[in-house]
């Protein structure tokens, strides 16, 4: 559905990423995770055709996004960071406006969602809360009924209730209709409930692309105490964090194998424990706190 090959992009002389390649298979929900400044929004802009990469190409439905036929965009739903919409319209006006562009427009699904919001029919979107605006944006995306949804930081500005509402509606819509989704969010707990696969980005490159279930089942957080201070330069252990000789690190080795590695490196340790952790801890473990 989405295929990006050898993407390299700079802002001025600053390299954002180099030789980035990834694919998003049909029917999957893929989340792009990364710290601030790793290029998540840049990737969304490249995919939605608002940015031309320095080199490489992005293809959606087999077409280069820069040369994409306008009609093909009917099948791509785009949510811009901050749930940007035509805020001078009310919920009926905006529905009437968009309906003219999409032959398969499903106004029923939109109005069903709008009925749940406590808004007056003539209330302008600019006078709605951020949560209500997110529901309007989601309703419009669902009514458009696209094959692919690209969502940039959908949780921005939403309280936990609206985040949960957004995710539940989106997941139900996407899974019941076999849609493909590419999304970013800075709140990783949300991702765990929503996405099938994730790409974790570090500065300049992709750290890994795996199904979330694989990460949850195979990543361990290791904790142990060092008998005496030492450096832990072991490639299998990601970003060891040492505080008062207590080490917190992580990796994909089963606990016995991790202990074997420590012993092989001659590390004098005690109180070793290993446990599975939520996606947010996996993300921090893999990318580091700084």
């Amino acid at each position: 559905m989405i295929e990006c090959k050898h993407l390299t992009h700079y802002y001025g002389k600053r390299l954002i990423y180099e030789d980035l390649s990834f694919t998003v298979p049909q029917g999957r929900i893929l989340g792009l995770l990364g710290k601030n400044g790793t290029g998540k929004t840049t990737t969304i802009n490249l995919l939605s055709g608002f940015l031309k990469p320095h080199s490489g190409e992005c293809r959606i439905f087999g077409q280069d996004v820069q040369q994409m036929e306008p009609a093909l965009r009917r099948n791509i739903g785009l949510l811009i960071e901050g749930h940007v919409q035509y805020t001078f319209m009310d919920i009926r006006q905006i529905e009437r406006f968009y309906a003219r562009f999409y032959p398969n427009w499903k106004s029923k699904i939109y109005y069903e969602l709008m009925d749940l919001l406590q808004v007056a029919p003539k209330q302008r979107i600019s006078r709605m809360s951020c949560g209500q605006r997110s529901q309007v944006a989601l309703g419009l995306l669902m009514a458009q009924d696209p094959e692919l949804l690209i969502l940039d930081d959908f949780s921005l500005g939403l309280d936990p209730g609206y985040r949960r509402l957004f995710i539940d509606y989106l997941r139900d819509f996407v899974k019941s209709k076999g849609k493909t989704v590419f999304l970013t969010s800075h709140i990783i707990q949300d991702m765990e409930r929503l996405i099938d696969d994730c790409i974790i980005m570090d500065y300049g490159h992709i750290l890994l692309q795996k199904p979330v279930s694989y990460l949850l089942e195979n990543y361990y957080q290791y904790n142990f105490t060092l008998s005496q201070p030492c450096r832990l330069d072991i490639p299998e252990f990601y970003h060891p964090n040492i505080l008062h000789n207590r080490v917190e690190t992580g990796g994909f080795l089963p606990p016995e194998a991790a202990e074997g590695i420590l012993q092989a490196h001659g590390v004098d340790y005690s109180d070793f424990s290993a446990r599975h952790v939520p996606l947010e801890d996996i993300f921090i473990g893999l990318t580091g706190k700084y």
Binding site: F50, P70, A71, R73, R74, L78, I80, F101
Partner: peptide, 8 residues
Amino acid sequence: KLTLHLPC
């Protein structure tokens, strides 16, 4: 961006 994303 919304306007430019419309299918036209």
